[in-house]
Simulated scan of single mutants.
Amino acid sequence: MHASILKYFVEVARCGSIRKAAQNLYVASSAVNRQILKLEAEMGTDLFDRLPNGIRLNAAGERMLQHIRATLNDYHLMRSELDELKDERKGHVTVVAMDSLFVDFLPAAVEEFSELYPAVTYSIAAVTPSEVAPKVLGGDYDVGVTFMSKLPAGLEVAGQVALPPGVVMAFSHPLAKKERLSFADCRDHAFLRLEGPSPLQGVVSPRFAEFWDLVTPSVICNSTILLKRLVASGRGISFFSKLAFADEIARGEVVWRPFDEPNVNALTVGIITPCQRVLSSVTTEFVRGLVHRLKQVELSLTT
């Protein structure tokens, strides 16, 4: 199949609309529609259900999408291998991770890797922890970093460390005097949180979900950088892994306290990759470096 058909099909499947896909691809809607019809004619079956408000993959379309993603992955893998044969350290690394890792951890990892592989390009996205695994499993990204829960079939853990979420606050905050904190301890203090669903949605007890739903935050925003500054200045408390505040903790600007909740404290931060897709050698090297860096951070924060 021609490369443009593959590209058009994947974008239409992602958008659920030929018009939106055409806008993203910077081509005419008629061109996209023509390619989709051509593909369906070649396959001898409809691949989409046509709905009043768009189109949706049917069972045949879902199977086609799996095939196309595998084909594109094999193509990128082949290109990376050809580059290596030419002694060129090229390739493309795709990473999806929870937002708190974008302040220090991931930038440092990319900077370090870029010194060894200056020609490598990257696609990196920030999402909520619960969205990481589905995006790696679906083939949108090859590497994911998130709080670990039960993984769906098709994913494996490249490495994980014991850096569970806890309560972060300014050194002078009253709760800093306690060794462990309950949800009840936190309820009467100004609470700062990221916009959207709980970062621990689906991975901890109902008691956490109840607290999350009942508490009234003093600040809601979509920027980890802003929350970090507000926490350090004493404007309130927030829930993060030590990983998100490594530098601030080392400088004594904030303190981190664990929850008095065994199931929360058992959570780990992990790096996940797909089992059923062969990763390029450059992505494999990036994962190896990421695991090493994660373990280094764990060691520095627990000693």
Rank of each mutant, 00 (worst) to 15 (best):
N265W: 03
D140W: 09
A60T: 07
G202Y: 05
V93D: 03
F171T: 15
D74W: 10
V291H: 04
S300T: 12
L227N: 09
G252T: 09
P52F: 12
S182Y: 15
P197C: 02
P199F: 00
L290I: 15
E298D: 12
E42V: 13
I237Y: 03
A22M: 07
S223P: 10
L192G: 01
S205D: 15
G236W: 05
L137D: 03
L51G: 10
R89T: 04
W256Y: 08
K228Q: 11
F102V: 04
F102Y: 14
L227K: 01
A250S: 13
V231L: 01
R19Y: 02
M78K: 15
A70M: 12
V136M: 05
V231S: 02
D185W: 13
L85M: 09
P152Q: 03
Y75R: 14
R251Y: 12
L37V: 08
A109I: 13
L151I: 12
N24C: 13
S205N: 15
A232N: 06
L25T: 14
H189S: 11
A158H: 09
A133H: 03
H2A: 15
D185E: 08
A109E: 04
T216V: 15
D260C: 08
S182T: 15
I272Y: 10
F105E: 02
L106E: 01
S4D: 14
T94I: 03
T121Q: 15
R277I: 10
V103M: 00
S17F: 09
E42D: 07
L294H: 04
Y26G: 09
A125N: 13
P164Y: 02
H292A: 12
A158C: 09
I220M: 07
V255S: 07
D140C: 10
A176V: 04
L243E: 13
D49W: 11
D140L: 13
E40V: 12
G236T: 07
P258E: 07
N53L: 10
P165D: 05
D74P: 02
S281C: 03
D185M: 09
R50T: 14
F286E: 04
A13G: 09
M78I: 11
L72F: 12
E84Y: 05
V132I: 08
K177S: 11
Y117M: 06
E179D: 13
D213M: 04
K150S: 06
P52W: 02
F183C: 04
G202D: 11
V127W: 01
R34E: 08
V143E: 01
N263T: 14
N222V: 07
Y75S: 08
I249Q: 05
A41M: 06
R63V: 10
R180S: 06
T284H: 05
E131A: 15
M64Q: 14
P206H: 08
T45F: 02
A209F: 09
S223V: 07
F48Q: 04
V291Q: 03
L101W: 00
G54R: 02
F48Y: 13
R19E: 01
K177V: 15
F239Q: 04
E298C: 01
C275L: 14
S114T: 13
G61I: 05
R89S: 08
E81S: 12
V282W: 11
E11Y: 06
F105P: 00
S198Q: 03
V168D: 05
L181S: 03
V27N: 00
V27W: 01
E81V: 14
E84A: 13
R14P: 00
P174D: 03
R187K: 11
T284G: 10
L137E: 00
S218A: 14
